[in-house]
Design a protein around this nucleic acid. Sequence first.
DNA 1: GCCCAGGTGTTTC
DNA 2: GAAACACATGGG
Length: 206
Amino acid sequence: MILKIYKKLLKEHGHRKWWPVSGFTEPKEWEICIGAILTQNTAWKNVEKALRNLDETSCRTAGDILNMDMSKLRRLIKPSGFFNQKAKRLKAFARYAIGNFGSVGNFLRNITREELLKVNGIGPETADAILLYACSKPYFVVDAYTKRIFSRLGIIEQSWKYEQVREFFENNLPKDVQIYQEFHALIVKHAKECCKKVANENCILK
DNA sequence: GCCCAGGTGTTTC
DNA sequence: GAAACACATGGG
């Protein structure tokens, strides 16, 4: 049933090419990690401005984040909102990756979900976005859109907790990184077009 | 001016 | 536990 919805969305919207990256960081997966933190409860347009500021300042690596003055980091990411706490989160995250794994590459290869969730500022959705899109590990990313769309369809309950929804999707889909990556991207696309807070009558899933 | 956006951590019942 | 709140910018 879930796979059928996936195929319907894929047919409607095509491949989404997620996660969007410009590739200015080293490694390029690092941009996914910082984007995942910056986009917390924030429109992606605003995140792009913050990422562009980092790009223009040649802030390309975790080390660059660590070495940067806090006030400068706050200023650069200001367009993405919540800049005080996000600056702290970026620092904490970079410190964790480098301090515990030596390099971002090593971090990406060896990090576990359980460990990632212990980092301050990394909740379940951010952790799964990093695991799925930066590490290419099969964890399904659940966001507000996912809950809204699938509870409206009567497939899940609005009251389900994050882990419950994630496990539901993972248990009802082939354990396939490509599908998980594509599906989440399609859900975001679909939500923005046709499943906003006020439901669209022409929703293709109805 | 109001509402919303690819959440998370803390405080308070 | 779960509900309420703080965190902040920019676009519609």
